[in-house]
């Protein structure tokens, strides 16, 4: 009798998830495979279309660039935060958390102010005489990239600080005492120990960028569609539910592949570490 209790407690959540997540998903995706006969035709014709394929490639390209840029900007910053006193660390973590908890519409809107024709960046560049007419920065792939870096950098920093805090500072001191320069000690000692954090953070940034809707919608414009905005357009504006469902599954599968891929890299690095030791 009492052994059944945990399952009874879990039942309401499971039922809701099955009815309102699993079944809706299957009911949307199943027709893309089955139309009288079982086939992959919807997917083949989707990828054969150069416009669709271009959007897929853009989404992947933007996600890669954003992830790499977040790592470049985030790793040293996280290292800096992890090395400060507990009091400072708390404050800096709160400062990093604040943009993360701020609505993504606001964070994208901030870049409309900065990158627009009469925006802050163009005014600044014009006033110091670098440009004579305003640059087209907004509604480009560039603005999606910068908006996404802005969106996801905090989450990478926060993930990394958690890992870097646990690295014993004495290891770094030992490396320096033994003659390594500070940068070399950082690259040879801190960076390898931070790899697990970098992997977890990269998964969050990559899949986040891959599926973000607000930023490409507000900063990309109609000519720079990403999979998420393309899905919305197909479903709600064009009424093309077949393509919308195809995009939905492509997004899910790509997310899963990216997660598996990063975890595979993480495992391989772990194994190499064991062999070294």
């Amino acid at each position: 009798m009492s052994k059944k209790i945990p399952y009874l407690i879990l039942a309401p959540g499971l039922i809701l998830l099955v009815f309102f997540l699993l079944i809706p998903l299957v009911s949307v995706i199943w027709p893309t495979f089955y139309n009288g006969t079982l086939s992959f035709d919807s997917y083949i014709s989707f990828f054969k279309d150069t416009y669709n394929f271009g959007i897929f490639i853009r989404t992947i390209r933007v996600s890669i660039i954003v992830t790499v840029m977040c790592i470049i900007l985030g790793v040293p910053t996280a290292y800096f935060i992890a090395g400060t006193s507990a009091k400072w660390r708390g404050l800096l973590m709160a400062l990093t958390l604040f943009p993360m908890l701020t609505n993504s519409v606001i964070r994208s809107f901030a870049w409309i102010n900065l990158l627009g024709q009469n925006g802050v960046v163009n005014k600044l560049l014009a006033s110091i005489g670098i440009i004579s007419k305003p640059l087209t920065l907004l509604y480009t792939e560039f603005s999606i990239i910068i908006g996404s870096i802005y969106l996801f950098l905090p989450i990478l920093i926060i993930t990394l600080v958690g890992v870097m805090e646990n690295i014993n500072p004495e290891i770094m001191e030992a490396a320096e005492t033994l003659g390594a320069s500070r940068i070399k000690a950082f690259i040879k000692v801190v960076l390898p120990l931070s790899i697990p954090g970098i992997i977890v953070g990269s998964i969050l940034v990559f899949t986040g960028t891959l599926t973000a809707y607000t930023t490409p919608q507000l900063l990309g414009g109609n000519r720079n569609m990403m999979l998420s905005t393309f899905l919305y357009q197909n479903a709600m504006t064009l009424g093309n539910w077949e393509d919308a469902s195809v995009i939905a599954l492509i997004m899910i599968v790509t997310t899963l592949i990216v997660m598996k891929g990063f975890n595979l890299i993480a495992n391989r690095i772990d194994k190499r570490g064991e062999q070294d030791a």
């Binding site: 899905l231 919305y232 997004m251 997310t255």
Partner: peptide, 10 residues
């Protein structure tokens, strides 16, 4: 894990 737009759409 399921993208938000996909949850919304389905």
């Amino acid at each position: 894990i399921i993208p938000g737009v996909v949850v919304g759409y389905s």
